[in-house]
Simulated assay, not measured.
Amino acid sequence: MGEMINSFILESGFANMGVKSILMILIACVFLYLAIKKGYEPYLLIPISVGMLLANMPGADLMKAPTDGELGGLLYYLYQGVHLGIFPPLIFLCIGASTDFGPMIANPKTMLLGAAAQFGIFFAFLGAILLGFNGLEAASI
C-alpha cells in the first residue's frame, strides 16, 4: 500500500514542482483572496491570479506550442488573442459597458471634468511636439 501511495505521489505533477512554482501559486491565492473577499480590483486581480495558477500548474504544459500531430496547450491558444490584438479592445469595451453613468446623469456638471481631462491630454501632446519631441515620444508623455 505504501509503495502504491509513493508511486502516485512521484507520478503526480506536484512532485515536479519547484520553489518558484509554489511561491507563484501562493501569490495567486493571495490575489484571489484580495479580489473575492476584500473586493480589491476584482476586474484585474481575478484574471491575473487565474492566469498565474494556470501557468504554474505542474506538468500541464499549458504554454506548449503545437507541433506536427499534437495540439498546443490551452494558454497557447488563449495567448493568440493577445498576440493578434483581439483582447485589448474587448477589455476596454467590457469596462466601458460596465461604467455606471448614474452620478453623471444626476450631476451633469461633472461632464466638464471629463472634457477637461481630454483637453489636457491633447494640450500635453501638442506641448511636447512644440518642445521638439517626435510623435511617439510626445504620445508617451
Score class of each variant (00 low, 15 high):
M52H: 01
A60F: 09
L126S: 10
L45T: 01
A55S: 08
I27A: 11
A55P: 00
L74G: 02
N56G: 05
P88L: 12
N107V: 10
L10W: 03
F87G: 00
E3D: 15
E70R: 13
Y33Q: 12
G69L: 10
L26S: 08
P47K: 10
L90P: 05
L53R: 00
L71D: 08
P89C: 09
L53K: 02
A97Q: 13
E11T: 05
P103N: 09
G13F: 10
L78M: 05
I105A: 01
L74A: 09
A106K: 01
G135M: 08
N56Y: 03
I129W: 04
E3I: 10
A124R: 11
E11H: 14
F125G: 01
E70G: 04
G13N: 08
E137C: 05
I5V: 11
N6A: 12
Y40D: 07
L34K: 15
M104K: 01
G13I: 12
E70M: 15
A106R: 10
P108D: 00
D61H: 05
F8R: 11
L130A: 14
I5R: 08
T110R: 07
L32A: 14
L113N: 09
M111W: 14
A117K: 05
I48L: 14
N16R: 10
I86H: 11
I121R: 10
D68N: 10
A97S: 15
F123C: 06
L32Y: 00
L113C: 06
I27D: 05
L90F: 07
Y77C: 04
L32E: 03
V30Y: 04
M17Y: 08
Y33S: 09
S98T: 13
G85W: 03
L131D: 03
E70W: 08
T99Y: 15
L136K: 12
V19E: 14
P47A: 13
I121Y: 10
K37F: 04
F87N: 02
S140G: 06
I141Q: 07
L113M: 07
F133Y: 12
